[in-house]
């Protein structure tokens, strides 16, 4: 599989399926999938960075909480992220740095608003590498 992530069809909402050699990669690609829905990733420059820490009772909830933290930052600070580095990842804890810039309407086309990542259909599958799936509420 040569893809980092793909978008899954769902009647009302949109899903993301992300791949990675390890779980960190898959979490990074899920985050890129999320922001690719909001805007064209190529239009975003790396001007600022945010450090992010998330805790959760298990891996699946951690994945949802990670994406919801990014949605929160987009909503509150108007930041679009394009690159992510996950510095620490366990079943219950994640530390990451996200790189991007503030929304500039002359430069970024905002495509859709994402309300939240949901727990419905959340999946983390390990075969060759990792595959993660999340359904987003649009």
């Amino acid at each position: 599989m040569n893809k980092d992530f793909e978008i899954i069809d769902h009647t009302a909402d949109v899903g993301i399926r992300a791949y990675g050699a390890d779980l960190k990669d898959a979490f990074v690609n899920a985050a890129r999938g999320l922001f690719s829905l909001i805007t064209e990733l190529d239009s975003v420059d790396e001007i600022l960075q945010r450090n992010i820490e998330v805790d959760a009772p298990d891996e699946e909830i951690l994945l949802v909480a990670w994406l919801n933290e990014l949605i929160y930052l987009f909503d509150v600070e108007n930041v679009l992220f394009k690159r992510f580095e996950i510095n620490k990842l366990s079943d219950t804890h994640l530390e990451a740095t996200a790189f991007g810039e503030k929304v500039d309407k002359t430069k970024h086309e905002l495509k859709i608003g994402v309300k939240a990542a949901t727990y419905h259909m959340t999946k983390i599958v390990k075969d060759d590498g990792y595959r993660v799936e999340v359904l987003l509420d649009i």
Binding site: H10, A12, Y119, M121, L135
Partner: peptide, 9 residues
Amino acid sequence: IHPGYGFPI
């Protein structure tokens, strides 16, 4: 009705 997340819409 159409599929939602958990509850149907």
